[in-house]
Design a protein around this nucleic acid. Structure first.
Length: 582
RNA sequence: ACAUCAGUAGUGUAGUGGUUAUCACCGGGCGUUGCCAACGCUCGAACCCGGGUUCGAAUCCCGGCUGAUGUACCA
């Protein structure tokens, strides 16, 4: 059993992850989050919210998981979120049709299926496996299709990313933020991709949770006002150049910027923030790196793109966050399809006075003279210099034909106009988190099988399984354990349980089985602290607090117990200071 | 998508054609029990689905579903 199997087995058994639809045999690519899993996931999301929504001020929005066709026409998902496949008629192998010919023709990626078929035939390409004849290319679109409304209702698609909902709301968002860059929106929600063959548990799902931010910034100013916050943060960077030699460099973000490895400050800040988030929820720092997209791997519109990758026991390095500078690509795309300008107007601090050379042909005379060609002639005139226009007879070339325009029907002048601002199509910085993959990475990195050494009369080694979850994400924070199941102890335990709940702590009461078993059970689900109630509790109003990782115990009074545990949980209180050592 | 292998209580498993399907942990109840997977009694719980061969199938065959691995794919 490798670590993946152990982690998944525990996750299944203790209520973190279950296969969906198991009752009916299950379907690949769907997982249920059980009681503990849901809580853990929600707590990870909550920290994300705290960082992006509260601290950064990128407000959360919620848009439908179903989208209409236009959105995905614009985003390119209808045409592009699919691969042209080509099957061999002999061996049934499937191949990317464009890859088969991309060495033979200049622009295989942009070709339609018919063109691909023609090119394959023309170059005599056969099956790379068995040399057999290839069938016709067809599209494999990874979006789930659905029908909006009854009958032949409108074509809809389940969204393959949450991002488009935010782009589509751009004008509303810009207005909300009073048209001042930078601003951003975030969304945590489900996205859908009809993967051909999902595997690897929760790593590749057909329905998954994304947390995305779309941050709209000034294309001419990609500095970040708060870059100092992460300037000295050391990051494992696997740069484009580094990937040639396989070297991961540990650099401060300031150095990476100085060396030009990261394109600009705003992106560097996002890398710093992502690094902070991932370690805070419990990703091991030494199993985390940021990999830059290779030049040929990067989408053509992106300037720079970094993936946060996590080292996992079975799958190796997997991508869990993508951070991209998507430039103005998305806004322009939606602008074109919707025929609506998606930009903001920015007023200059000082209006600029611009002198322009303005040509004013007299259309009243030009019209009768040139009839249908008048407009073309006028346009040509407007492009001419003062020197050319000063002649009595102006020669104009239109569509390789020469026309002669009398000089007296064209006036021109230097005019000074006041320009008080400009319209800008913002660039988009997009951190995109795969929450399910982060969830798995967190539990894998927290999973620890600890050997406790041999006990005296037992030959076997005693092993303890612990989930060393961060206090902030643990789905159960305090276990309440009456040492014996006796009525008076149970009463005290129940009242302590209520006391802790009023403080908002996640507690679980457990009185079944021996104390040792209950400790182990809680170690397995990552409960950081246990409170044990015994007869001294009854006599002296004190309890034992036990720390998960060290198994150390202290004795603390019931009064104020909720404050002590809260401080242990959230305020880095030293365990030794929580009570008297035992 | 193709190929190979696999699927038995909640979990991990034994079982290669023949009564009531093995064992452990697990979960519940009762008793016992003073702090790191104690003990006794007791109860609960499974042959992935469908078809076929056979007097008889968890076991053999076919199809499906699910999982693992390899290849392909992976905004």
């Amino acid at each position: 059993m490798d670590k993946y199997d152990q982690v998944i087995e525990l996750a299944k058994r203790r209520g973190f992850l279950w296969n969906s639809f198991e009752l009916y045999g299950g379907t690949a690519g769907f997982y249920d989050y059980g009681p503990l899993g849901s809580t853990l996931k929600r707590r990870i999301e909550q920290i994300w919210r705290e960082l992006y929504v509260v601290h950064e001020g990128y407000m959360e929005i919620e848009t439908p998981t179903v989208g209409i066709e236009d959105i995905f026409l614009a985003s390119g998902h209808v045409g592009g979120f699919s691969d042209p496949l080509c099957e061999c008629k002999e061996c049934k192998g499937a191949f990317r049709a464009d890859h088969l010919i991309d060495k033979l023709v200049p622009s295989a990626e942009t070709m339609g299926n018919a063109e691909l078929d023609a090119a394959i035939k023309e170059h005599g390409v056969s099956c790379p496996e068995c040399e057999g004849e290839l069938g016709e290319a067809y599209e494999f679109n990874l979006m789930f299709k659905t029908q909006i409304g009854p009958g032949n209702g409108r074509q809809g698609y389940m969204r393959p990313e949450t991002a488009q909902g935010m782009f589509v709301d751009f004008l509303r968002l810009a207005r909300f933020y009073r048209e001042k860059l930078p601003f951003g929106a975030t969304q945590i929600g489900k996205s859908y991709r009809n993967e051909i063959s999902p595997r690897q548990g929760v790593i590749r799902l057909r329905e998954f949770t994304q947390a995305e931010a779309e941050i709209f910034i000034d294309p001419n100013d990609k500095k970040h006002p708060n870059i100092e916050r992460f300037a000295n943060t050391m990051i494992n960077l696997y740069s484009d150049a580094g990937q040639d030699t396989g070297i991961v460099e540990k650099l401060s973000l300031a150095d990476a910027l100085d060396k030009g490895i990261i394109a600009h400050e705003f992106l560097a800040y996002q890398i710093g923030l992502t690094n902070h988030f991932l370690q805070r929820v419990g990703i091991a720092g030494n199993k985390l790196r940021f990999r830059q997209h290779r030049k040929d791997e990067m989408a053509h519109y992106a300037i720079d793109c970094w993936d946060a990758e996590v080292d996992t026991d079975r799958f190796g390095w997997i991508e869990i966050v993508g951070i991209a500078d998507r430039t103005d690509y998305d806004l322009n795309a939606h602008s074109t399809v919707s025929k609506t300008e998606l930009s903001i107007y920015r007023e200059y601090a000082e209006p600029k006075m611009a002198t322009q050379f303005i040509v004013k042909p007299n259309m009243g005379q030009l019209g009768p003279l040139f009839k249908g060609k008048a407009k073309a002639v006028a346009d040509a005139l407007k492009a001419m210099t003062q020197e050319e226009l000063e002649k009595d007879e102006i020669k104009v070339m239109v569509n390789e034909e020469e026309y002669t325009v009398p000089g007296d029907i064209v006036t021109f002048a230097e005019e000074t106009t006041k320009i008080s601002g400009e319209t800008i199509v913002p660039h988009v910085i997009e951190p995109s988190y795969g929450i399910d993959r982060i969830f798995y990475s967190v539990i894998e990195h927290a999973f620890l099988e600890e050997k406790l050494g041999k006990s005296e009369d037992d030959e076997e080694e005693d092993a303890r399984i612990i989930m060393k979850l961060q206090n902030e994400v643990a789905p159960v924070q305090v276990a309440i354990l009456p040492l014996l199941s006796r009525e008076e102890l149970i009463q005290h335990a129940r009242s302590i349980e209520n006391r802790l709940r009023t403080k908002g702590l996640l507690v679980s009461y457990d009185d079944s089985g021996t104390i040792g078993r209950r400790y182990r059970r809680n170690d397995e689900i990552g409960t950081p602290y246990s409170v044990t109630i015994d007869y001294d509790t009854v006599d002296e109003n004190t309890v034992t607090i036990r720390e998960r990782d060290s198994m150390k115990q202290v004795r603390a009074p019931i009064s104020g117990l909720q404050e002590v545990l809260y401080d242990l949980m959230y305020n880095d209180k030293e365990f030794e200071s929580a009570g008297e050592a035992l």
